[in-house]
């Protein structure tokens, strides 16, 4: 199975759903003309990132009656879409979410499980964390989605790998930080390293889509990229600027790589699960809670 993946690194207007929806719809037009089959937008692409008290004001209910989701679902009849938004829980808390739209339906929603609340980040104050990570079947193979801090924790892509994901879609709103004499910021070097490492470790395609633009002095660096199951970089978008980067994904490359390197076949998920359970038990015994 071969298809064309598009990574669309957009800027946003902070808290302006209509303006950001317009950006999505025109980007989708461009992608459609370029023959893109699956188009990914960054984390919180419909709202902007540093929402603070705006979180509740821009939250959506992802269904066909929603005026923002309705045109996006319509567009997903031509190509599959991943969009970022704030999901309004019926109990009035808010979650950072990515939705996979296909053939006019919502195929899957991932709620961000790890909310960074340190340094420049304050997500835990404004959002509730998701508590589920799972791969799901699409027209383009089995997909796993993660949002930003989710994949700073190795367990998350590991779990998606165990669940059969062939394509990891990582969506970020990652601000540049950590300047040095190197040719990139610490945050972008880190993301490139781990994305490549995940592709290598799990013999999967890894696509990272990161936004651009600035919010109160935070500069989002873009640089979206795709690694193939051998860890080779297949595509990279420019730093800082809005751009659509497209690349062909050949899912049979996963078969070829795994014939050479049967890491998934040999992976001892049972050993991992049993050992983790023992470790957690021991810690609970010693400290009264897992540490």
């Amino acid at each position: 199975m071969r298809f064309t993946l598009g990574l669309m690194q957009t800027n946003t207007v902070l808290g302006d759903l209509q303006a950001n929806l317009d950006t999505h719809l025109s980007a989708i037009d461009v992608a459609r003309q370029q023959g893109v089959d699956l188009l990914c937008f960054p984390e919180l692409s419909l709202t902007g990132y540093y929402l603070k008290d705006l979180a509740g004001e821009v939250a959506l209910r992802p269904d066909p009656s929603d005026p923002v989701f309705s045109p996006l679902l319509q567009a997903s009849r031509d190509l599959d879409l991943v969009v970022g938004f704030v999901d309004q829980h019926p109990r009035h808390h808010y979650m950072i979410a990515s939705a996979y739209l296909s053939e006019g339906r919502i195929a899957h929603i991932h709620h961000k499980c790890y909310l960074p609340t340190y340094g420049i980040f304050d997500e835990g104050r404004h959002f509730a964390a998701g508590n589920r990570v799972q791969a799901f079947d699409t027209r383009f193979g089995r997909v796993g989605m993660l949002n930003c801090e989710d994949f700073w924790h190795a367990s998350m892509p590991y779990l998606l790998w165990a669940d059969g994901a062939e394509l990891l879609l990582l969506m970020s709103a990652s601000p540049a930080r950590g300047m040095s004499s190197a040719d990139r910021f610490g945050s972008s070097a880190w993301v490139e390293h781990v994305s490549k490492a995940y592709a290598n470790l799990f013999s999967v395609y890894v696509a990272h889509t990161n936004r651009v633009g600035l919010e109160d002095g935070l500069a989002f660096w873009g640089g979206s990229l795709l690694f193939d199951p051998d860890g080779e970089q297949v595509a990279q978008a420019p730093l800082w600027d809005e751009a659509l980067v497209t690349a062909e994904v050949d899912l049979s490359q996963i078969r070829r790589t795994r014939l050479r390197l049967p890491l998934l076949r040999d992976e001892r998920f049972d050993l991992t699960a049993a050992t983790l359970a023992q470790i957690i038990d021991k810690q609970e015994e010693a400290y009264g809670h897992p540490v």
């Binding site: 808290g15 600035l214 919010e215």
Partner: peptide, 8 residues
């Protein structure tokens, strides 16, 4: 709590 760049 809102950014200064709120709405832009």
């Amino acid at each position: 709590l809102y950014l200064r760049d709120w709405g832009t």
